[in-house]
Structure formats: structure tokens, C-alpha cells
Design a protein around this nucleic acid. Structure first.
Length: 245
DNA sequence: GCGACAG
DNA sequence: ATCTTGTCGC
């Protein structure tokens, strides 16, 4: 049972062999070898992969995937991936993967809890999304490598993160109109934006995950959020994770 | 040193 | 994340 860490056993369970999992779909995902078994190892993984993040990329997309996880009880969880047609926002494909939290909850290391299940869901897709919309942060993170960066770097796909509460850095409150935003500044650098997606409603906190510019992140999140506070891909994934069919 | 801390 | 009712407003 993973979610009991701070004091982990080093050479406990050998990692599964590289060939123990396969994907039937077109989305190929790099595996993390070995899976971190302590806070220090997890932080080291983030520090190592951080250099792989690309902050520029395409500005338009055709298939957008929303990703989210729902927890049941202690460690059981369901990950969902829903692909939408970027032009119409109509659902194209939806898949779920059941699993268990793979790491205890530690702010900043949140990605390690959900990564295995989210990766499995991505591998079950039969279409290839060209943008991953993640529920959490990207480079707006204590070590500059949040969940959206993990998923982007491991798949090679453009990825962005949408957070519902402030996490790192400082920012002013954006104006009340939809589309208003202010920069999130962390250690002297702009790492994301507080973005108003609905008039008078709490802003969301967006940041780059991989292969997208901050302007593109802002533009896409607004485009994917025609009605509610959160982007449609995330809302669909959230619903599917809660009510698997 | 203490508190706060994505989901 | 999750435990939880009603209520106000578009």
C-alpha cells in the first residue's frame, strides 16, 4: 500500500518489467522508472524532468482531451479521459481506468497519486488528442513541474493545467469580466495567469504544461469554457469519473 | 521556528 | 479529494 510514505523502504518492491503494460491506442506514454518511493525521490524526478518542458508549440487544436480523477474511500480511484472535438466541443471518445492512489498526498507531489491511472486511461484511447487539459497545475508549481507537465512530457503532447485554487506565486485579482486575467509571479518569473472564465465568478489558475505558450493556454481555456467556470473537457471528465458507465 | 499547501 | 441542505440568482 503506497500511500504511507514519509519513511519509505528503499529496495522493497522491484518495479514492474517494462513490458508488463501495453497500449492498444495511439497515445504512447513514457513510463517512470523506477516509481518514486519517497518524497525525496519524487522531487528528484520532477527536478530531472523539468528540463524537458517546452514552453512553445501549436496554437490551434482539433481533438482536446480532458482528464480528471475521482476518489472513492481511502485509496481507490477512477481516472477519466474525455476527448472533445475542439471545434464543436462534442464528445468524441471517453474512457475510464480504475486504480489506487500511487503516492500519499503531499502538496507539490500530487501528480504521483493520479499519474498511473491517468496514463492507463490515455493508453485506452483509440484517437490521439493534440491537447491535454489537466485538472491541476503545470509550471506554476514549487519546482516548476506540476501534473500537466508530467502528462505533457511523458506523452510528448501539448498540455495545460487548470487549477481551482491559488497554489504558488502572487497575483492580483483580475477584473470581473470574462477574459480578464493577471499574471501569477513566482520567484520573479511569470508562471501562469489567474483567468476569469465567467463574469463575477472566481477565476481559475492556468499554466503551461508542455508545448504551449501562455497566450495559447489562456486562449484555449477561454475557448473551451463557453458557459461554466471550468473548461468543458474537465467538466466532462469529472462527470465520467464520478459516474462511470 | 510556524503555518500554509494543486486534488 | 471527501463529509453535506438549502438557498439565492441567472
Amino acid at each position: 500500500m503506497p500511500p504511507t510514505l514519509p519513511n519509505a523502504s528503499p529496495d522493497a518492491s522491484p518495479d514492474a518489467s517494462p513490458a508488463d503494460r501495453y497500449s492498444v491506442g495511439p497515445v504512447q506514454v513514457e513510463q517512470l522508472h523506477p516509481w518514486p518511493s519517497s518524497v525525496a525521490e519524487a522531487e528528484a524526478v520532477q527536478d530531472r524532468l523539468r528540463g524537458h518542458v517546452e514552453l512553445t508549440g501549436p496554437a490551434t487544436f482539433t481533438l482536446v482531451a480532458g482528464l480528471d480523477v475521482h476518489y472513492h474511500g481511502d485509496e481507490a480511484l477512477t481516472a477519466a479521459a474525455v476527448v472533445l472535438d475542439a471545434a464543436t466541443l462534442a464528445p468524441v471518445e471517453q474512457v475510464v481506468a480504475h486504480g489506487r492512489a500511487a503516492f500519499p498526498y503531499v502538496p507539490g507531489l500530487f501528480a504521483f497519486r493520479e499519474l498511473p491511472a491517468l496514463v492507463e486511461a490515455l493508453e485506452r484511447l483509440t484517437v490521439t488528442p493534440d491537447l491535454l487539459v489537466c485538472d491541476g497545475y503545470g509550471v506554476a508549481h514549487p519546482r516548476g513541474f506540476g501534473l500537466a507537465c508530467h502528462l505533457g512530457v511523458l506523452t510528448g503532447l501539448p498540455a495545460l493545467g487548470v487549477g481551482k485554487t491559488p497554489f504558488v506565486g502572487v497575483h492580483e485579482t483580475p477584473g470581473p469580466e470574462r477574459g480578464a486575467w493577471t499574471p501569477i509571479v513566482h520567484e520573479g518569473a511569470t508562471v501562469g495567469r489567474a483567468l476569469r472564465t465567467r463574469p463575477g465568478v472566481k477565476p481559475v489558475y492556468v499554466s503551461q504544461g508542455h508545448r504551449v505558450s501562455l497566450d495559447t493556454v489562456t486562449e484555449q481555456v477561454l475557448r473551451l469554457t463557453p458557459r461554466y467556470r471550468l473548461p468543458e473537457p474537465i467538466r466532462h471528465a469529472d462527470h465520467l469519473a464520478r459516474h462511470p458507465s
